[in-house]
Design a protein around this nucleic acid. Structure first.
Ligand SMILES: [Mn+2]
Ligand SMILES: [Mn+2]
Ligand SMILES: [Zn+2]
Ligand SMILES: [Zn+2]
Lengths: 142, 142
DNA sequence: GACTAGAGTTAGAATAATTCCAAACTCCAC
DNA sequence: GTGGAGTTTGGAATTATTCTAACTCTAGTC
């Protein structure tokens, strides 16, 4: 079983679970996100998937990305004005945005920290998700 | 010394510090943010300040907000696609976004927690700001 | 007190990202 | 094979923001 097969299966499964079909467009979009995990925009995804599916439209890329987000296969990320970015990393993680280069990196979060952060919420606030964005510069070892 | 005078002074000071003038437009925009701290959009600010300055344009509201952000009197907040929101709370704080109502609340952050969060950054990542957004529902006591 | 250069404001045009729409297409289940 | 839901597509529409060029104000300078 290749990683690719595995991805296809998990994609097909999750789509089926939501009563949706597995289409070539949805596959190439999802594969593009898994292949280069640099938090691309819809436009960037469009450019990449055209290599595989030259006739795919930008509207379809938006549709597929939205579908993947609905199926919890992909996270939509917004940390500044500008195009939404997409991330296939399902593990709880924060994002580091390098202001100099514009690059975005995943930062793993220890599970303990998340509950510690939730502790700052006063009673009456019930969070089901936390987004953490670091902004700064990266140096040397990357 | 009224709070209003105090605000005007700190505004005038910070503007002067950046070599900028204190204009009626900048004052009403800043005052609007301080008066109702509900993280309004530029459009909402525009609607509010028109009561004081009926001829102010939306472009000017955008200009003033940008100026206030540059002067570190106001934070621009983006946690989802949609208009940028503005926050005059200068203390380190997180945001709680109520998905049901769309309302955004400030959540104070103990200083210790911030450095604890920064500890998760691997070497080579140097963050000069952290944004934390909670998403969920608020109940009862608000 | 008028003069001027630069800073600030304004309305409207332009841009960028996304969503909407209606038509064409695909895939099964019957 | 047909019908119908689900999907894709190109282009129009929408939304938020930025740009532009003209106008206005203000702080010095004479
Ligand atoms: Mn950036
Ligand atoms: Mn919302
Ligand atoms: Zn990510
Ligand atoms: Zn705030």
């Amino acid at each position: 079983m290749t990683p690719n097969t595995l991805n296809s299966e998990s994609l097909a499964q999750k789509l089926a679970h939501s009563g949706l079909r597995n289409t070539p467009q949805r596959e190439v979009v999802y594969t593009a996100l898994l292949t280069k995990r640099d938090h691309p925009t819809a436009d960037e995804v469009h450019a990449r998937v055209r290599a595989d599916l030259p006739t795919i439209s930008l509207a379809t890329v938006y549709n597929c990305l939205e579908t993947l987000v609905q199926c919890d296969l992909v996270r939509a990320v917004n940390f500044e004005r500008g195009p939404t970015r997409y991330c296939p990393n399902l593990a709880p993680h924060a994002h580091f945005h390098d202001e100099a280069t514009g690059a975005t990196f995943d930062i793993d979060l220890p599970t303990g920290l998340i509950s510690k952060i939730k502790d700052v919420l006063p009673p009456g606030y019930d969070a089901d998700a936390i987004d953490i964005i670091f902004r700064g510069k990266t140096t040397a070892t990357r």
